[in-house]
Computed example of a mutant assay.
Amino acid sequence: MPVWVFLLAASVAFVWVGAMLLSKLNPDDPIPLLGAPPVVPASFIFILGGGVALGWLAGSFASEGVLGPWGYLVGALGVLVPWVVVRGQHNRHLTRI
Rank of each mutant, 00 (worst) to 15 (best):
M1E: 11
M1K: 13
V3H: 03
W4P: 06
L7T: 00
L8V: 11
A9F: 03
A10F: 15
S11M: 00
V12C: 13
A13F: 15
A13Y: 08
F14D: 07
F14V: 11
W16F: 12
W16A: 12
W16K: 04
V17H: 03
V17F: 12
V17N: 01
V17P: 00
G18M: 03
G18P: 00
M20A: 10
M20H: 13
L22Y: 11
S23Q: 08
K24M: 08
K24S: 08
L25N: 01
N26S: 13
N26T: 11
P27T: 12
P27Y: 07
D28L: 13
D28W: 09
D29G: 09
P30V: 11
I31A: 10
P32M: 08
P32Q: 07
P32C: 14
L33C: 09
L33S: 12
L33D: 09
L33M: 14
L34G: 10
G35L: 14
V39Y: 12
V40A: 02
S43R: 08
F44W: 03
I45Y: 15
I47R: 09
I47W: 05
L48N: 08
L48M: 15
G49T: 14
G49K: 11
G49C: 04
G51V: 00
A53F: 07
A53D: 12
A53P: 02
L54Y: 01
L54E: 04
L57E: 08
L57Q: 06
E64G: 15
G65D: 14
V66S: 07
V66D: 14
L67H: 00
L67K: 02
W70T: 01
Y72I: 00
G78F: 02
G78L: 07
V79Y: 02
V79K: 07
V79H: 05
L80G: 08
V81W: 02
W83Y: 10
V84T: 06
V86N: 04
V86T: 00
R87Y: 06
G88K: 10
G88T: 02
G88C: 05
N91K: 02
H93F: 15
L94V: 09
L94D: 12
L94M: 08
R96H: 05
R96W: 03
I97V: 06
I97Y: 13
I97Q: 15
